[in-house]
Simulated assay, not measured.
Amino acid sequence: MFRQITGWKFSLIAVAVAIIVTTIWFVNNLSEKIQEEETKKVATWVEANRELLQASPDANLNLAVEIVTTNTTIPLILTDEQGHIIDHRNLDTQQVVRDTAYLERQLEDFRQQHPPFIMAVDTHSNNYIYYGDSLILRQVRYYPYIQLIVVALFIGLTLFALSSTNRAIQNQVWVGMAKETAHQLGTPLSSMEAWLEILKEKEDVRPLASELGKDVDRLKLITDRFSKIGSVPSLEERNVVEQVAAMMAYIKKRAPQKVNFTLQTAEQEVTAMISPTLFDWVIENLLKNALDAMEGKGDIQVLIENHPAHLTIDITDTGKGIPVRLQEKIFHPGFSTKKRGWGLGLSLARRIIQDYHKGRLTVKWSEQNKGTTFRIWLRK
């Protein structure tokens, strides 16, 4: 399914790029044609002015006058041979009055845009006519880019809204599964507790009942954890060092003897507001992941550092490491590198730290065949 979604996104991006390239190509061709037409209009305007200057008193100049007066879109600047501005047309008159250097800047821009037309004044001198792009041409050139930016923003907001909706739906699914699991476990647990009470009355099976009781308590803890997913947990001020040490002791009893556990902390009491049940679940999950990564031997080191406003918990293993391309994907629901499992452990762990404790859970460091460090960041 992940590959299907990725392929669909790449196809959508490819289509969007094709549309953008086609649009820009079409607009560039259109603007070139408009520019050619404007150049012809300026040339016609220059010829009309030349005819007006050189015409005899009895010549019919109606057409030339009409050509000269109908140019209201293309900006023009007339200069002499020394570059002094003689006249201008279709420029911002208010800007000309307010800014004495406005015409000079426009003239420099026109020189860079198009070569000038030369108009003979007499046999000894010429005038130069510089022209720029009309407002219509500038709009044609830049409007598609503005439109594409607006469309891109719209698509981005749409994708963000869809992503948020999908995340909300996924969260509802996980929450529903967790609560249903807790509900389903509740009934057999109640029955098992009743049977345990009966077994405890029999002297010969009392040790067995005691061991079964530990497993029942463990199942009750798991049920309690699942029941708290999706609800607002009550946070308590707890000593994080004690919480982590207790969970390490629990995992150590069930780990291979070739795995060494080390807890490092400069202070024996580092407090924070946590949900003990859910926080223990996160630590247990990270320690179990470390065990799986080391495949039966290696070192697991937990470092707790106390800071004025926050604390950090680094859990480091000497396992096989996580490739860079997977270091963010491992937190996605359903993603797993193991042959067995649903890929929910790290996803739920991050949800517990971020949503319930307002902290962060990240991969601080990882190198293949050397190990991995997960960091928990919590406010105090």
Rank of each mutant, 00 (worst) to 15 (best):
D87S: 11
V363G: 01
T337C: 08
T223V: 07
L208K: 13
D299G: 04
P256V: 03
P256A: 05
L287N: 01
L30W: 09
W342P: 07
K220M: 10
F335I: 11
A182H: 04
R238A: 08
I169W: 06
E305M: 06
N90G: 03
Y143D: 08
A59P: 04
F279R: 00
S31Y: 03
L212T: 04
M294R: 01
L185E: 05
D217Q: 14
M192G: 04
E328T: 08
M294P: 03
S234G: 11
P144G: 02
N260C: 11
P75V: 00
G213A: 06
Y250I: 07
G371P: 05
R325V: 13
W45F: 05
I313S: 03
T262N: 15
T271I: 07
L278Y: 00
A290C: 05
V205E: 03
D217R: 11
T100H: 14
D292L: 11
E328A: 06
I118L: 13
D122A: 03
T73R: 09
T316V: 05
Y142C: 06
E104Y: 06
I149C: 12
K253G: 10
I77M: 00
R218H: 13
E36Q: 12
K179W: 05
F117N: 03
I34K: 13
A266L: 10
Q301P: 02
D80L: 02
T93H: 13
L148E: 03
I352D: 01
T70M: 08
I24S: 07
S210H: 15
A272P: 01
K338I: 09
R206V: 01
I19S: 10
I19H: 08
N171G: 10
L326E: 12
I198Y: 10
E201R: 12
V21Y: 10
V15C: 11
Q95S: 09
L63G: 07
L346S: 00
L185G: 05
S163Q: 09
L135S: 14
E305H: 07
E267V: 05
E51D: 08
K339F: 06
N28S: 12
T271E: 07
D92H: 03
L291F: 06
L189P: 00
Q106M: 10
Q184H: 09
R379S: 15
K288R: 15
Q172I: 08
I129C: 01
F374R: 04
H310E: 07
H114N: 13
A309H: 15
L12C: 09
T181D: 07
E367G: 06
K9T: 13
L189M: 09
K202W: 03
H183T: 13
L153I: 10
N71T: 02
E237C: 08
S191L: 15
L348W: 03
L30G: 03
A168L: 12
D109R: 12
S164P: 05
I155V: 13
Y130E: 02
K339E: 12
S31P: 02
K253V: 07
G176W: 08
I283W: 00
R225C: 06
L162H: 07
L287S: 02
Q301V: 14
F2D: 15
F160G: 10
R325H: 14
E267C: 05
K338M: 14
S191M: 13
E203I: 06
N166A: 14
R225T: 07
K200N: 08
K252W: 02
T123W: 09
Q147W: 10
V15Y: 13
E47F: 04
K339T: 09
L291G: 03
F110H: 02
V175I: 09
A249L: 12
V240K: 03
